[in-house]
Design a protein around this nucleic acid. Sequence first.
DNA 1: TATGAATGAGCCTTCATTCAT
DNA 2: AATGAATGAAGGCTCATTCAT
Lengths: 210, 210, 210, 210
Amino acid sequence: MTGAGAPAASRALRSQGRRTVRRLLEAGVEVLAAKGYHAARVDDVVRAASTSHGTFYRYFANKDDLFRALLVEVGEAMGEHAESLGPLTADDAGREELRRWLVGFARLYDRFAPVVRAWVEAEMDTDQFGRVGADVLAGFAGILTERIEAADGPVDDPASAAIVVVAMIERANYYAAVGHLAIDPEPLADSLAAAVHAALFGISTPRVSH
Amino acid sequence: MTGAGAPAASRALRSQGRRTVRRLLEAGVEVLAAKGYHAARVDDVVRAASTSHGTFYRYFANKDDLFRALLVEVGEAMGEHAESLGPLTADDAGREELRRWLVGFARLYDRFAPVVRAWVEAEMDTDQFGRVGADVLAGFAGILTERIEAADGPVDDPASAAIVVVAMIERANYYAAVGHLAIDPEPLADSLAAAVHAALFGISTPRVSH
Amino acid sequence: MTGAGAPAASRALRSQGRRTVRRLLEAGVEVLAAKGYHAARVDDVVRAASTSHGTFYRYFANKDDLFRALLVEVGEAMGEHAESLGPLTADDAGREELRRWLVGFARLYDRFAPVVRAWVEAEMDTDQFGRVGADVLAGFAGILTERIEAADGPVDDPASAAIVVVAMIERANYYAAVGHLAIDPEPLADSLAAAVHAALFGISTPRVSH
Amino acid sequence: MTGAGAPAASRALRSQGRRTVRRLLEAGVEVLAAKGYHAARVDDVVRAASTSHGTFYRYFANKDDLFRALLVEVGEAMGEHAESLGPLTADDAGREELRRWLVGFARLYDRFAPVVRAWVEAEMDTDQFGRVGADVLAGFAGILTERIEAADGPVDDPASAAIVVVAMIERANYYAAVGHLAIDPEPLADSLAAAVHAALFGISTPRVSH
DNA sequence: TATGAATGAGCCTTCATTCAT
DNA sequence: AATGAATGAAGGCTCATTCAT
């Protein structure tokens, strides 16, 4: 798994080739961060990777192919993290687990923010591109649904609750990463954990002691 | 307030001109719905409005000018609705008020979905365009913050709680409108109201019957 | 029938537009003559037509669309001429008719040589382009077949005889037009008429009197 | 004579080198057959020859160098065959000789069809490439002219008659090989022999039985 | 000697915007 | 006021050829 796109799928890359692919992928993230998906130019990417157009198309079928490859990487990292969510319980341990998991998610999100933003930007366009992103989301929601069912809390409809939770987590992190609204990361993580736990078990925070 | 863009600002439009502007705005929504922001072409808009390029530029400075005008309309409607949120209370009346408000929001969202999607798509691009959208969000979050503070619930940080709530509401409706994930509108509204109320007052649902 | 390509098919062209189309078609012939089909650049055409790339694509879907339009024009002219062939008879009148017809053909061929050469060059490429050309040839061969059958001469298989004759006429004119081989037009026309008549009626030339 | 191009001219090739050259030439024919001259890519050739770009340019100066080498091979074979045409006489023996010769030509043409098609396609492009082909044709026409003169038939202008005959033979075979028009090979050979003999001696076919 | 990685000029096409009628 | 013709900068992609290993 080199991370390369379609044109390189049939060939076995040598070490030089693999290095170039890596450089292009990293350049892709850079450009996505700087200009976003639609404004990203192949020229920007090859310049950032210090290579040529010809080389780009040796490893990726086109612009989308590169970004799809990036999204797949992100999807894999996110999927792995999603699996790491332990059982959800109504007690403090459960809330703590949730918090731990959300912090990990925030870290991932922050790291991959440019790619996720690109996905959001591109959602409408390419079926393929949108598909990869939707799969990530669906996988996420699926795992949450399982945990919620297993938690046996007061939730009526685990599937739609999971979606609400995913939506909340994703967007809140998105706002934080994009900086669209001014939020501090720490209180946000707390608020999120509280909100999610409350949504699942009905108790907002342990310090409700008045 | 005719809804026209910059070039028409200095002129007083006659009724024919106003009709043309109206046609262009509606065509803009149509095109946004059909193709999204980045794939929308001026040519698509003028064809949908049965008019010409020359005419388009008589009323709007450029493509973005049209979409900004649309977004302003949406922002105004959303802002008005935001203001209509009554006091939030921990009891059933508070939950009911919340539910009413969320249903209204879902209706608005549904009606303006193409424009909102366009905004999401365009977020990175134009400072101006993104700004209008961010203002809408910020206005929203501000009003919620006020209400949460006034509610005097167990919430620690009203501002970031408001953002979590906005994120949850916005995204959940977005998913529903775009159809990215399969959600039924009714249980979604219920789940949302329950989740928001729980996040604010710590009681998830009245029917916790274990 | 303006001769324009696909993009102009749905619009009604005004006189300015029709003039532009005409200029582009003529420029196409020029460029074809100077550089041939494969070396022809859209840029060459628009420069020869003193217009812009944008304008080119307003009237033709792409390079091929322009050349197809030209080929259709040629095909129509050739088809009309083909129809003008009178009955073939074994006597001098028949030979004279044949000669007249061949001379007319040579004139047409000369006039449209660049386009025909382009067709020959492109034969393999586009199905569409090749199809138009093949249709012209087939139409030609069909008419000849009819005439040969009507002539009731000693020919065994009118269809393949017609093809031989078409091949002979086409190529001989081609060589003459392209200048690949040094041929004078007049004796060529004579030789062709003699050969064709001989092929159809078995008498090569009237002056075989030894 | 290894058939290699310019870069190999100065070196003496070992047996491995000769094998590589052979593979490249055969790959060239394959690719020409499959995609034609203009669509042929160096990459296609090296892939078909199971070798690399670097190797290709060790033996051929460039793409055209390979195809020129192929055309030279064809030209030699054709030239040899042309020489094999015996004296043309007005009697049945002459007609039979002509038929034999034409059948041999058809076989050659069929075998080399891809290369000949490539030549036709490329006629305009490279002076060099076109020249080789024109030389083949001219050699052909020259030999025919000689034979026609020696035959002392009723032909007025042997040179242009030869060209008409060459045109007829070449194109008819071309159509047959390319499949542009539906022709059966056998009646075509007969028709051709009959037509050529008639053009030269004035008697179309022996079986004129009216 | 062979391989495959890299190059970059070149070409087609799009589309927001301006202009002439 | 409206129309549609014209513009041209910009960007994606190809592929013959050269280079480094």
